[in-house]
């Protein structure tokens, strides 16, 4: 089957990954084949140690691919130099379990750090404020993280990930540190933004309460793709 390249955000072929060297070498991913079409929200689940996060960091160009083929946003990243990987990462939004905000910077400044990557100086504040407002933080733009709740901090982190309009968003347990209500809010906001801007989201989560936002759920067990289930929306 031939694909139109631009309709796929991520294309993985026969991807394997190993940790360690020599005798300690241990395989964590086995022959993964996966396509993520643009605009899809995909949730990846699976037991601990099944390789979910490793797969996510590979797609995020944070690790070097050892075996197989991995195309992210129409670019083959196997064999790219470190510097080239950094360039690839600039088109990806990352959301982590911990918010990883600079305590010394205000919400707006934390988001502006992302805008500065594009060498845009004039309207960076405006863009940051706009993004934070979309996430319901209009009255919190000049607060430092210490004055924000857990859910608010995670929303700042999401604003930071999305402010540059990345085509691909990778999230690793974005709700794990949040209570039920804030978790729900955060995911709903992500869903709305993804739908309105046509982003692809790949989210690793154990949180059963949020599975309904997904278009598709894939399960990874012991480094192999176990199930791949599309949900009627």
């Amino acid at each position: 089957m031939t694909r139109i390249a631009s309709s796929t955000a991520v294309q993985i072929r026969q991807l394997s990954y190993f940790f360690g060297q020599g005798d300690l070498r241990k395989q964590v991913l086995y022959d993964i084949d996966l396509d993520l079409p643009r605009g899809q929200i995909v949730i990846m689940t699976g037991p601990s140690g099944s390789g979910k996060t490793t797969l996510l960091t590979l797609i995020g160009a944070l690790r070097t691919v050892q075996q197989g083929s991995l195309q992210v946003l129409d670019q083959e990243i196997v064999g790219l130099s470190r510097a080239a990987l950094v360039t690839v990462r600039r088109n990806i939004g990352f959301i982590f379990q911990a918010h990883n905000l600079f305590e010394s910077l205000t919400a707006s400044q934390n988001v502006e750090m992302a805008v500065e990557l594009l060498d845009r100086w004039g309207d960076k504040r405006q863009k940051a404020v706009q993004m934070l407002s979309q996430l319901g933080l209009a009255d919190r733009v000049d607060y430092k993280p210490s004055a924000l709740s857990g859910g608010q901090k995670q929303r700042v982190a999401i604003a930071r990930a999305l402010v540059n309009q990345p085509a691909l968003v990778l999230a690793d347990e974005p709700t794990a540190a949040l209570d039920k209500q804030s978790g729900r809010e955060v995911v709903t906001l992500m869903q709305e933004l993804a739908k309105s801007q046509g982003k692809t989201i790949l989210m690793v989560t154990h949180d059963n309460r949020i599975l309904d936002v997904a278009d598709r759920i894939i399960t990874l067990v012991d480094g192999r793709l176990e199930t791949d289930e599309s949900l009627a929306s």
Binding site: V86, R89, A98, N100, M113, R160
Partner: peptide, 15 residues
């Protein structure tokens, strides 16, 4: 103290 933040900056695309 800022290791996670710096690593995040690297993930975001800072060199």
């Amino acid at each position: 103290d800022h290791m996670k933040q710096y690593a995040t900056l690297k993930a975001m695309g800072y060199r």
